[in-house]
């Protein structure tokens, strides 16, 4: 590729195969196939957290991380759209500090739409969605200040988080907020687990919108994802067996195994 790999075709084949499986499951789901999705406690806790904010009469904080406009940010906005519908219904005050200007403009639209969809456009305050700074620690200090000053009741952190994750989570903990967090950056997961009440781990993050909305397209895509993971897991098992056979120099099988290993060796 561009062109890092000399052997791009095996990667392309696996990627296309996974894509076909995902699309096939989406089409099946759209045709009305019933799909099961396991319980994700962190997502179930969203309503509990909003309810708590309603009881306490304190704001709900939503942080879409510090990443740019990407699928990760879109996924976060999808979850926040659901949260905003609930807060519109119960009349909670929301705060949504944003670090990326592009995410900010889309976020404003998404939250405004959520309020409109609930029939309470008048409850939407434009100032609740705020661009703070695109510098990591300037943003971190801004969010920490908001948490302290506004004494938030619930905090939702979904998106791309780096070193600032613990600053948000621990400051939220200081003011006694109930906190739900999820990120694709595995190094930040331990910090969230230590300081938050619920944490979404790994690809649960991408399952969130399907879990919340129960939209057939998303549910189908989620099941397709699992099939994709199964495909990769199978390749891992086959690879392990092949590596063993190649190392043992088993006649014929060993050569075939070596061919398979070479297919996926990029260095």
């Amino acid at each position: 590729m561009q062109h890092a790999f000399e052997k791009i075709w095996p990667v392309l084949i696996v990627e296309v195969l996974t894509a076909v499986i995902i699309i096939w499951r989406i089409v099946s789901a759209q045709r009305g196939k019933e799909l099961f999705i396991r319980r994700i406690p962190g997502l179930n806790a969203i309503d509990e957290a909003i309810g708590r904010a309603t009881e306490m009469g304190r704001p709900v904080l939503m942080v879409p991380g510090i990443g740019g406009f990407s699928i990760i940010a879109l996924q976060a906005l999808s979850i926040f759209s659901y949260i905003a519908r609930s807060t519109a219904k119960f009349g909670n005050r929301i705060l949504m500090p944003v670090a990326d200007p592009t995410v900010y403009t889309v976020a404003e639209e998404v939250i405004r739409d959520a309020y409109q969809a609930e029939g309470h456009p008048e409850r939407f305050e434009a100032d609740s969605i705020r661009f703070l700074s695109d510098r990591q620690f300037a943003f971190a200090s801004g969010v920490a200040g908001l948490i302290q000053r506004e004494q938030i009741a619930s905090s939702f952190m979904f998106g791309e988080f780096f070193a600032e994750s613990l600053i948000f989570a621990e400051t939220g903990n200081m003011v006694g907020a109930i906190q739900v967090a999820g990120t694709v950056h595995t190094t930040q997961i331990p910090f969230f687990i230590a300081a938050c009440d619920y944490t979404i781990i790994g690809d649960e993050y991408y399952a969130a919108s399907a879990y919340i909305s129960r939209n057939p397209t998303m549910l189908g895509s989620l099941v397709g994802q699992d099939f994709g993971k199964l495909l990769i897991a199978s390749l891992c098992v086959i690879g392990s067996v092949a590596a063993t056979l190649a190392a043992l120099e088993v006649p014929v099988l060993g050569t075939a195994s070596q061919w398979f290993i070479n297919l996926f060796t990029i260095r």
Binding site: A19, I26, I71, Y206, T217, S221
Partner: peptide
């Protein structure tokens, strides 16, 4: 976790790319 995230990212990208 990385495999799961990779496949999850691919699924969302596909949904957006194909306007699903």
């Amino acid at each position: 976790i990385a495999f799961g995230l990779g496949v999850g990212g691919l699924a969302i990208s596909l949904r957006i790319w194909l306007s699903l």
